[in-house]
Design a protein around this nucleic acid. Structure first.
Lengths: 110, 110
DNA sequence: GCTATCTATGGCGGTTTTGCCATAAGGCAA
DNA sequence: TTGCCTTATGGCAAAACCGCCATAGATAGC
């Protein structure tokens, strides 16, 4: 029997866009910090230790994916996490990492 | 107070590698199909409609991330999902997409 | 042996991402 | 106004990603 995609391709493209936005260490560091509450760009810049323009672009990626939202207050811009499911995301990722560790250990032992 | 990453950078890099592996439509299509059980490369190639070498490389990415494992049987190689948390991952992604739709609608309405 | 099938790998262009620099835009204070 | 601070954007080069072609390796069957 022929195997076919369960959903239209556009659905997978939309999903991939979200996952791709989560696929960079600096963006994950920022999201982790933002889980405790909103932070301004200056704080996030110091957090990841990259150029301010780089951080701003990373935030733009997260915003375009709908993962964070921003709020201007005077000169500063505060970003906050917009979705509540990231906890589940972390757990999923961590469970993969844990499984990988187990596999590596088994490979060494064998 | 200075904000600092909650975990060592390597941790975020490992996490990002997983997320990045999930950041391509073809790979998501394959993972979705593989949730029903293992499939050979030839079936997955037909599924995504790309070159066989392209599919093989996509599978290599998923395998290196520890998301799938493979099993050789004669000439064929069967891939299967290695982790059980992907369902939670889908739900997280879908909740982001749903939230984005809401935001877009609100933007149009306003 | 030879041939056909299935899969993995190398290579090559084209596209996308990434990070920094420079700079522009906007707000606050003196 | 001038100056300072914060953020966003454009540009550029380096790197990574992606897709196909060609091909090599391995196995099954003749």
């Amino acid at each position: 029997m022929k195997v076919k995609p369960k959903h239209p391709i556009e659905r997978y493209e939309a999903r991939a866009k979200i996952a791709k936005a989560l696929g960079h260490p600096s963006r994950l560091i920022m999201l982790d910090a933002l889980s405790d509450g909103e932070l301004c760009v200056c704080e996030l810049t110091e957090l990841v230790g990259a150029d301010q323009s780089t951080v701003s672009k990373h935030l733009s990626v997260l915003k375009q994916a709908g993962i964070v939202s921003d709020r201007k207050e005077g000169v500063m811009t505060f970003y906050r996490v917009k979705v509540g499911c990231l906890q589940g995301f972390w757990q999923c990722i961590e469970s993969v990492l844990k499984e990988n560790l187990k596999t590596q250990r088994a490979a060494i032992g064998a």
